[in-house]
């Protein structure tokens, strides 16, 4: 079995109002010096396959076709 972690984040230049709100809340809690906060998503995926190359290809396709909206989001895949 292969375990992977996929991280989906907003592309640079795409406004992230949720990240902005979190950034403001951190400031409100007294954390000074927070430059910026960007919110993203994490997917932990378990694959029954044990072939690493095949798994990587499948995970990439999952990102392209569903997990990320590549109009606004980037993704990274880490097989653990």
């Amino acid at each position: 079995m292969i375990k992977a972690r996929i991280i989906v984040t907003l592309k640079n230049g795409v406004l992230d109002p949720q990240g902005k709100a979190i950034e403001g809340a951190l400031g409100g809690l007294g954390f000074s010096g927070v430059g910026s906060v960007r919110q993203g998503k994490v997917f932990d995926v378990e694959l029954q396959d044990s072939d690493r190359a095949k798994a990587e290809a499948a995970l990439k396709e999952m990102c392209e076709r569903l997990l990320a909206n590549t109009v606004i989001e980037d993704y990274s895949i880490a097989i653990t």
């Binding site: 109002p17 109009v71 606004i72």
Partner: peptide, 11 residues
């Protein structure tokens, strides 16, 4: 259609 719809700026 082209583009995307994101969370309202006001949240």
């Amino acid at each position: 259609l082209p583009g995307a719809l994101m969370r309202n700026a006001s949240l």
